[in-house]
Design a protein around this nucleic acid. Sequence first.
DNA 1: CCTCCATGAGTAGCATTGCTACCTATAGCA
DNA 2: TGCTATAGGTAGCAATGCTACTCATGGAGG
Lengths: 112, 112
Amino acid sequence: MRAEALKGHLDGLLLATLEDGPLHGYAVKEALREVTEGRIDLPTGTVYPALHRLEGAGLISGTWAVANGRRRRTYRLTAAGHAALSDQRAGWQEFATAVTFALKARPWPATP
Amino acid sequence: MRAEALKGHLDGLLLATLEDGPLHGYAVKEALREVTEGRIDLPTGTVYPALHRLEGAGLISGTWAVANGRRRRTYRLTAAGHAALSDQRAGWQEFATAVTFALKARPWPATP
DNA sequence: CCTCCATGAGTAGCATTGCTACCTATAGCA
DNA sequence: TGCTATAGGTAGCAATGCTACTCATGGAGG
């Protein structure tokens, strides 16, 4: 997976991962990796700042907890987050359709 | 179409547009707009630098010409450009599949 | 005649964003 | 004792598309 390909689509993926229920940061990363069968395996240096961004934007809310002697920050979608996820899904559909179409080989578009 | 969504995918779109035959910069922009029915309508400040990048990378080659008193730079795909386009197509397929899957609502994945 | 618009090319500088490369800490296993 | 997985974090970099301009020609409308 090319590195820059993800730009602009990460937020939606994180939100979608949190849609199923609250998760802490590391679990988000793992869930995304498992769901995509390893195709999207984000470094922690990508995940944590992104979650902070989303929290700052009010799309998710985090709370500290402790489990197994380790501190965790558990995130859940806010109402705004659910709405944003809807937008992201719609935006992705439109984007993917346009790119797929534009990328398609057009053998002889001007010769019917 | 969100602005940042395109990041990392622009090159492939431009290469695909040039696959059908040589075009000058402005025509590339117009062709891409028409092919996608206006969904991808790039500002010239995006197109020209991108074409320069692609030319610098050896994926396209440009030659100056004059038509209707206006100077044009006509670009065509190089062999490397054709190869890069193949890679872009494959990469896009993989990326789109992964994102579509990850973005999909997973009602109860853990409860069979 | 003058102005506006489409065509055609270009650049400087900005903002965003994901990544690399680090650091800290605990639990468990070899 | 050290390594690995888990868990969270940051500083700074590099890439990339966009905004907002500049310059130029030709044709249409007033």
